[in-house]
Nucleic acid binder design. Structure first.
Lengths: 215, 215
DNA sequence: CCAAAATCTGAGCTTTCCTTCATATATTGC
DNA sequence: GCAATATATGAAGGAAAGCTCAGATTTTGG
C-alpha cells in the first residue's frame, strides 16, 4: 500500500534546461502561496499554474497529477527539515543528554516558527493526502539521526538510547505541533518552549537517578 | 472569519419524528464508514447516502452541504470527548497533581485508543476542513475544565494552575496525537503512555521543589 | 544557421460530484 | 378518517476541476 500510494507521484520529466528549473521552482512557490491564501480545498491545478505564470500544460509536464505536486512539495520541505535535524545531531556527539534535548527542541522549534503559516498549511496538506508513507519516511530518517546521537551521550547508557529517543521525539514533535495549532501569542509560545525543555530534562534526570540506583 | 466559517453549517431541519432520528444516525454512521474505507478525498454525498441506505435528497434535508456534515460529525465526537474529560476533571478535585495528570492522560488515551482508526480519520477530516474554529472551541472548553481541576490541586499554588495547564495539555494532547500517527505496535504504545505520565510527574516535582525553595 | 530536442501553450474534453425540486409516501393530531 | 405536516425519493441540472494534446516557441549542439 505504501509503495502503491507513491506510485505515479514521481516527476514526469526532470528539468534539464535552466528555464525549466525556474519553472519548477515557480510552481512550487505558487503552490505555497495558493495553499496559504486559499487553503488546500481551493487549491486547483489551474490556480497554481496561473499564480506561477505558466500554463496548466507545463505543470503537467513535471507533475503527473495534483497529488504528486503536493507530495513533492512536502518532500522538499521535509528533506530540508531532516537535514537540519541531522546536522544538529551530528554536532552534539559526546555531549550531555540535556544539551542534546535542548538543541533538538531548538532546531525543530525554529524550523517551524520561521514560517509558522506555511508550517500549518503543510500539516494540513499532508493530512488531506491520506498518505502515511510520506511522514513515516521522514520519521524514520530523523529517528535514525536522533537515536544515533543519544547513543553517544556522555551521561546515558547506550542501550537506553532507542527507548529514550522514542519518548522524547514523540513528546517533542507532538507538543510542537500542538503548540502551533492553538492560537497562542508569542510570549506563550516562548514560555511553552522553555517548559518543554524543562520537562524533558526533568524526566531524563529522574531516569538517570533510577539507573544509578540499580547499578 | 470564525463565525463565517461555521455559517450554513447548522442542520437545515431538526428531526422531530423517530424515523428521522434513525435516519440522521444512519447518515453519521455511514459517514464514518466511508471515511474509514475510502478516505476524506473520496467521501461524496452520494456515497454516504448510499451507505446509509437513504437518498441524497434526504441527506440534504438535514445537512445543508457536505461541509456541514463533516463539521457536525466532528462536533459530535468532540463533544463526547469533552464530556469525558470534564467528568474526569470533576472527580479529581482536591487530589494531588500527579493523580490528576495520570487521570487526564488515561482518559484521553483510552478515548483515542478505543477506535484508533476513527481517531485518525477524524484528525484528517478536520484538517481538510481548513477550519480552526472547531478545534479551538473544543480546546477552550476542555482547557476550562482542566484549569479548574489544577486550581484545586492539594499540592499546587492555585495561581500556577493556568501556566501548568497550558504546558501539560499541550504536551499531552500533542504526544498522544503523535503516538497515533506513527505506526507503533501495542507494546510501544503502552510504554509511551507510561513514560509520558512519568515525564509530566517528574516535571511537576521539579516545579514544586523550585517553588518550595523560594518560599 | 539549422535540425533536433526541450519546453510551453490553453482551449476544450471528460469526469466527478454537489445540489435542487417536483413528486410520492408516511406520520401525526384532531 | 382526513387534512396537515414531516419525511423520503432520485433523476437531472450545472458548476468545478482534472487532465490531454496538437501545435507553437525556444534552446541547444554541431
Amino acid at each position: 500500500m505504501t509503495s502503491h500510494a507513491l506510485q505515479g507521484a514521481k516527476p514526469r520529466k526532470t528539468p534539464v534546461q535552466s528555464r525549466s528549473r525556474v519553472t519548477v521552482d515557480a510552481i512550487f512557490e505558487a503552490t505555497i502561496q495558493v495553499l496559504l491564501s486559499e487553503g488546500m480545498a481551493r487549491l486547483t491545478t489551474t490556480r497554481v499554474a496561473e499564480r506561477a505564470g505558466v500554463s496548466v500544460g507545463t505543470m503537467y509536464q513535471y507533475f503527473p497529477n495534483k497529488l504528486a505536486l503536493i507530495i513533492a512539495l512536502n518532500e522538499r520541505y521535509l528533506n530540508a527539515l531532516a537535514e537540519r535535524v541531522e546536522q544538529t545531531c551530528a554536532r552534539r556527539a559526546g555531549h550531555q543528554v540535556s544539551e542534546m534535548v535542548a538543541a533538538l527542541i531548538e532546531t525543530y522549534w525554529t524550523a517551524k516558527t520561521e514560517r509558522a503559516d506555511l508550517t500549518q498549511a503543510l500539516y494540513r496538506s499532508v493530512a488531506a493526502l491520506d498518505n502515511n508513507a510520506l511522514m513515516n519516511a521522514f520519521a524514520t530518517r530523523v529517528d535514525t539521526a536522533t537515536t544515533a546521537m543519544f547513543r553517544q551521550a556522555s551521561d546515558l547508557p547506550p542501550e537506553d538510547a532507542a527507548a529514550i529517543n522514542l519518548t522524547l521525539t514523540t513528546v517533542i514533535y507532538g507538543a510542537v505541533r500542538n503548540a502551533f495549532e492553538r492560537e497562542l501569542d508569542k510570549e506563550q509560545i516562548a514560555a511553552l518552549k522553555a517548559r518543554l525543555t524543562d520537562m524533558c530534562c526533568a524526566w531524563l534526570r529522574s531516569v538517570q537517578l533510577r539507573t544509578q540506583m540499580t547499578t
